[in-house]
């Protein structure tokens, strides 16, 4: 097996909050009618359940987030993607679905520290005070699409891989010491 290289090779920045590029992280884009029973059964096998609208369900190092009315994002260790895809494809074969590995198409960042919220409030047109626990928010950060949620006292933020460097730049700029709001 060749080494996997995340978009930025684990770059970090220490400002008034800490920014870390993490990954590679396994991600599966899963599209189907979310009310279908085989979906619930398939997720149950992974220890997960079907999330409500705009929610992310996290359990034992795996999560599944609601992306749209007919799309979920399964997040799991990178090494498990192949077998999980197999599991899902077999379990969902009876219904109309799509399951694709998108692990490499993404960059994942952690924003940590007491004032982590301020970083996002500079970049996203989102009322973060209204963000509920377990809510996955899709929006934009400056000029690119992102999704984020609260996790372990910080935020986990996902962007497209090609713009990882831009996103890191945004986060760095916003977290620069002296820029506390």
């Amino acid at each position: 097996m060749h080494d996997l290289v995340s978009a930025l090779g684990g770059k970090t920045f220490e400002g008034f909050a800490k920014i870390r590029e993490i990954g590679p992280l396994g991600m599966i884009s899963l599209r189907c009618d979310l009310r279908q029973k085989p979906l619930a059964a398939a997720l149950k096998k992974l220890g997960l359940s079907v999330p409500a609208a705009r929610r992310i369900v996290q359990k034992g190092g795996r999560s599944v987030g609601w992306m749209s009315p007919d799309e979920l994002l399964v997040i799991l260790p990178y090494a498990d993607v192949g077998s999980t895809l197999e599991t899902l494809r077999n379990a969902l074969a009876v219904i109309h679905f799509l399951a694709e590995d998108v692990s490499d198409a993404r960059a994942v960042f952690r924003i940590e520290g007491e004032k982590a919220e301020q970083i996002l409030s500079k970049l996203c047109p989102v009322d973060l005070a209204g963000l509920e626990p377990g809510e996955l928010r899709r929006t934009r950060a400056a000029q690119v699409a992102v999704a984020f949620w609260v996790e372990d006292g910080g935020y986990t933020l996902v962007s497209f891989r090609s713009v990882a460097s831009y996103v890191m730049g945004l986060l760095t700029h916003s977290a620069t010491k002296g820029s506390e709001i």
Partner: peptide, 16 residues
């Protein structure tokens, strides 16, 4: 302009 100057003027997409 806010942060959108220099490197952050617009998102550059980079291939691997």
């Amino acid at each position: 302009t806010g942060e959108a100057r220099g490197e952050l003027f617009q998102p550059l997409r980079r291939t691997p």
